[in-house]
Design a protein around this nucleic acid. Structure first.
Length: 365
DNA sequence: ATTGCTGAATGG
């Protein structure tokens, strides 16, 4: 019977709290009856030894990566980084002290090109925030400000997106959204390159997945799948938290009145769902050269929802502690050449010790 | 939740 599996899958996304996942683990644990100590309490439902067992089970239980890294949410780029090398992505969190400095120049160049493009569309305003709710409110305000611009047929840049993938809250920023001449809603992701040629297949693959995730989450937002309580529950925010004066002022400037966090949440939800914003029809990645701004090529992507969701499921299984992190396959071992963690990498060591080569290529359609 | 909780993305 595999019915129990699907039950778990159904139950999980709804729960944002750790006590629920604790009870889940208790079901998996062997039921221990070590009632040697207090037989007098046997009439009680809450037996002391059971309590003890629960405590030790809690302590012994391996934390999920989300718990160990104290993460309430993931960034889209965290997930797409798993395409390149999941193990490397994990090391970046575990060993930030070993973070490489080699390509910071390229990264910063990319950053400033992106910023320059953003400034062509709107000014940046710095707003003082006094609570966590305030800082999330800013993201919602950005979203609320961009919707009318988009609906007026103009382009927007840095569009915030939120959603839930496999029960995990994810956050991202869409580079650019706009309508094509044919009236299709188009997502355009800009990638700048130090080298004056298109990236390798491996990099393109990662970039594509990033864009696929944006579509997945954006579509769910405009289809009304992201309700306000999801926000509150996953991020542990207080709906009644009064917004800071500067945040309230920004809301007024944008034409909204919101005094508490939930006001903004509801406004965002209503604006997203009631304005007939379409799902994204067209996905493209534009590669340009950092030195000359010369276009290197544009990729138009075909979105395969089933394939994206299958990969998402596999990637998030790591975060939820359902499997160990994976390094690159043998044929991608060249990536280790660029990796700051190559010398300490367990995956590499493990592979050198025991040559357990996977004989199943992923392309088994 | 014991008191608590991160700009995302930048490129190879």
């Amino acid at each position: 019977m595999s019915g129990r599996d699907s039950e778990l899958e159904e139950a999980e996304p709804a729960s944002g709290f750790s006590d629920l996942s604790d009870s889940e683990f208790l079901q998996i644990e062997e039921p221990e009856d070590g009632d040697s100590e207090k037989p007098s309490c046997s009439h009680n439902r809450h037996l002391e030894p059971v309590e003890k067992a629960l405590e030790t089970a809690k302590r012994k239980r391996a934390q999920t990566p989300l718990e160990t890294f104290r993460l309430l949410y993931l960034c889209i780029t965290d997930v797409s980084a798993q395409v390149w090398c999941e193990q490397q992505m994990v090391y970046k969190r575990e060993r930030p002290d070993l973070l490489p400095l080699e390509n910071t120049v390229q990264l910063n160049t990319g950053k400033s090109i992106h910023l320059a493009r953003e400034l062509e569309y709107h000014d940046l305003v710095s707003v003082c925030t006094t609570s966590r709710e305030d800082s999330w409110a800013i993201k919602l305000l950005n979203l609320l400000a961009m919707i009318p611009v988009l609906q007026a047929g103009r382009r927007v840049r840095e569009f915030p997106v939120f959603g839930v993938l496999e029960g995990v809250f994810v956050v991202g920023v869409i580079d650019q959204l706009g309508y094509t001449a044919k009236g299709e809603l188009e997502l355009s992701e800009l990638k700048t390159r130090h080298e004056a040629f298109l990236p390798s297949a491996a990099q393109k693959k990662r970039d594509r997945f990033q864009v696929f995730l944006y579509k997945c989450i954006f579509d769910a937002m405009v289809q009304g799948h992201l309700t306000w309580d999801i926000f509150i529950q996953h991020l542990h925010l207080r709906p009644e938290q009064v917004l800071g004066p500067q945040v309230q002022e920004q809301a007024r400037n944008a034409g909204f009145t919101a005094s508490c966090f939930q006001d903004l949440l509801e406004l965002a939800f209503l604006n997203l769902t009631l304005l007939d914003i379409p799902v994204i029809d067209r996905l493209q990645i534009e590669y340009i050269h950092q030195g000359t701004n010369a276009p290197l090529g544009t990729e138009v992507l075909a979105y395969d929802d089933d394939a994206v969701r299958a990969t998402v499921r596999d990637f998030l299984a790591y975060w939820k502690g359902q499997r160990d992190p994976k390094g690159v396959d043998v044929e991608d071992a060249w990536k280790c050449r660029y990796c700051a963690y190559a010398s300490v990498c367990d995956w590499r060591l493990g592979r050198a010790g025991s040559p357990t080569v996977k004989s199943r290529p992923k392309k088994s359609r």
